[in-house]
């Protein structure tokens, strides 16, 4: 089980990277930590002509912090977030999510940008960052643009990147001190891919109430205004006001019919809400 042959280049600046991405008639894949792409290459499910290693580019490990957000470069790893080698604007929410991604040996190489660009429905960051309200900073030959995480993933293993574009960084909004956060993942074995993810953010000071049903068969279900999940009255207390019927209707709308899958999603969301209510 070895990858099919490919060429490999490792540019050390963004201009070199963009030039390589424009290689015409070639199937070019970006490589960061390779913890999702590696298995696909070994199984020969993906057979690129050229692999471009983006980890030698300092801009992609850039970390910026200001009063309302933290910007993390695409090559920041899950372990960097877990160990708080990079600043945290979420009161510990992201480090806790990072700590439960796969296994430590994977987290030491797997990256934030790589996970988002890979767009596995069962991965943690696509759901978690959609609930947090983060944005993807995209770089291409024609310049930069920003896309909210909940619009970035467009399908299974598919994202809103145009040919020649890549994830440069992720902008994570700073949560208020009193923000309540819950995240629950159901997996058959510790560290395995999720069968269901529930996430909820209630940041009253900023007037934000978001929820996510993740690890579906496709894109996560995002409630950017989740008031309807709480009968329009979240102030009564999240756990108390939670209306499971509203979540079930969202599953109906998304065409999720398997009764076991539905139950797992509802339980994951309910547990995330209980967690947020206790904080």
């Amino acid at each position: 089980m070895k990858p099919a042959p490919f060429e490999y280049e490792r540019p050390d600046d963004l201009d070199g990277l963009i030039a390589l991405m424009r290689s015409e008639d070639l199937f070019v894949k970006m490589l960061a930590g390779g913890q999702s792409l590696g298995p696909m290459l070994n199984l020969r499910l993906v057979q690129p002509d050229l692999l471009v290693d983006i980890t030698a580019i300092p801009e992609l490990k850039r970390v910026e912090e200001n009063s309302d957000a933290v910007v993390l470069g695409a090559c920041v790893t899950h372990a960097d977030i877990e160990d708080r080698r990079v600043p945290d604007a979420t009161g510990g929410a992201l480090p806790r999510v990072a700590r439960a991604i796969a296994y430590r040996a994977v987290r030491n190489r797997g990256t934030l940008g790589g996970s988002l660009a890979h767009a596995d429905p069962a991965a943690d960051w696509v759901s978690c960052l959609a609930a947090i309200g983060a944005e993807v900073l995209i770089l291409g030959a024609s310049g930069r643009r920003t896309v909210p995480v909940d619009e970035f993933m467009t399908g299974v293993f598919q994202v809103a990147l145009e040919p020649g574009e890549l994830v440069e960084a992720v902008r994570i909004p700073r949560l208020s001190r009193g923000a309540r956060w819950g995240f629950h993942k159901i997996a058959r074995k510790t560290g395995e891919m999720a069968q269901a993810i529930g996430a909820v953010l209630h940041d009253m000071e900023r007037g934000i109430l978001r929820a996510v049903i993740g690890a579906t068969e496709s894109v996560p279900i995002v409630f950017s205004d989740a008031a309807a999940l709480f009968g329009g009255n979240p102030e009564a207390g999240l756990a108390k006001a939670y209306d499971a019927g509203a979540a079930a209707r969202a599953l109906d709308d998304a065409g999720i019919t398997d009764p076991v899958g539905r139950q797992l999603h509802l339980v994951a969301l309910k547990r995330a809400i209980n967690q947020a209510a206790q904080r």
Binding site: Y8, E9, D12, G16, G33, T55, C75, N108
Partner: peptide, 12 residues
């Protein structure tokens, strides 16, 4: 910061 093992050498 960044993937362990990576970023130790210059460009190809």
């Amino acid at each position: 910061v960044g993937p362990a093992g990576s970023g130790r050498a210059g460009p190809t």
